[in-house]
Nucleic acid binder design. Structure first.
Lengths: 172, 172
DNA sequence: TATTGTTATACTCTATAACTATA
DNA sequence: TATAGTTATAGAGTATAACAATA
């Protein structure tokens, strides 16, 4: 196994074995802080994820959206209900195939989506306060390369289920 | 996406507004991959977090452990039960105050903890495959500074609850 | 018959509050 | 009375499967 047969000599820089852990730690920390800020807009992260995708791909069906978020169509219903109740998006039956709901942001939805963008920037500003603008770009560059290599879809990430156990039966 | 009303001038490096998002995305991705690897040791992330802390601070009480993990003492019980059933740790009543359980890794627990370390290294290796060793250190350095500034405790992170809503009543 | 969205159900996870044993 | 650990219970969150409408 890829145990570290690394020398671990006295000369070795300290430990760099922590980058993965720091990533998880900061990801969790940042996600929580972001959620707190979002609450100011009366939204949860799932709402923001939906708005983000719909802003980029208007007219998407709920099934397509669910697949993009790696979630179940049934889980989306409540979130979309809430967003529709707030008049941030609308479901309109697709004209070609009326089984599909074409999802589209309303004008108000676009406004709120921009507000979410503002929240995201403020969040990032606060989160990365320790770094200069140049260093932030440097960080973004490194992370982008990792994300690309890992095959992550730009601008999309599914929710986590960090704490729980990995679904007893998915142990396959 | 990432509309950003930022200047977006030709000179600007691309977009650096993504670092925060990338952090969350990669944190979630990495956490899931790590959980999958851990399943090979028949552990969940919560187990690994407990082993990690106990390895560093033997004799800790359950309450102190709960506080360190920012979780509730009652939540710990099942996890500690499981670890004890596997003979990875033991609860021993504190001699000075027998209400306290002094938690300590067994020898087997130490072995498994080391195995978790190996899994973590393999995980990190795979996760950061896009970066050279130098770049990985560079990344770790940047992340460490961010973590310090944010007041995160080295070597500890609580679980997330990424997807859910932030406790209906906290909406006040 | 197959598919989209929805609802119903069961199941898990989490939080709150009793309970016990020590102090 | 107060505290550590545990258990019980109720509440959210999640997954699976049944359902109605459309194709």
């Amino acid at each position: 196994m890829e145990n570290g047969d690394r020398p671990e000599r006295a000369g070795a820089k300290k430990t760099s074995a922590e980058a993965g852990f720091l990533l998880a730690q900061l990801g969790a920390h940042g996600a929580q802080k972001f959620a707190e800020r979002l609450a100011g807009l009366d939204l949860v992260p799932a709402h923001a994820r939906i708005l983000r995708i719909l802003a980029a791909s208007p007219g998407m069906s709920q099934r397509a959206l669910a697949e993009m978020l790696s979630t179940l169509p049934s889980r989306l219903v409540a979130f979309i209900d809430e967003l529709e109740d707030k008049s941030l998006l609308e479901r309109r039956p697709d004209e070609n195939d009326r089984r599909n709901n074409a999802l589209r942001l309303t004008e108000k939805g676009e406004v709120i989506f921009k507000a979410v963008g503002g929240v995201a920037r403020a969040h990032q500003q606060a989160l990365l306060a320790a770094l200069s603008a140049e260093e932030q770009q440097q960080l973004a560059g490194l992370l982008q390369r990792v994300a690309d290599e890992q095959g992550l879809i730009p601008g999309v990430h599914p929710g986590y289920r960090g704490g729980g156990r990995p679904s007893e039966k998915a142990t396959r």
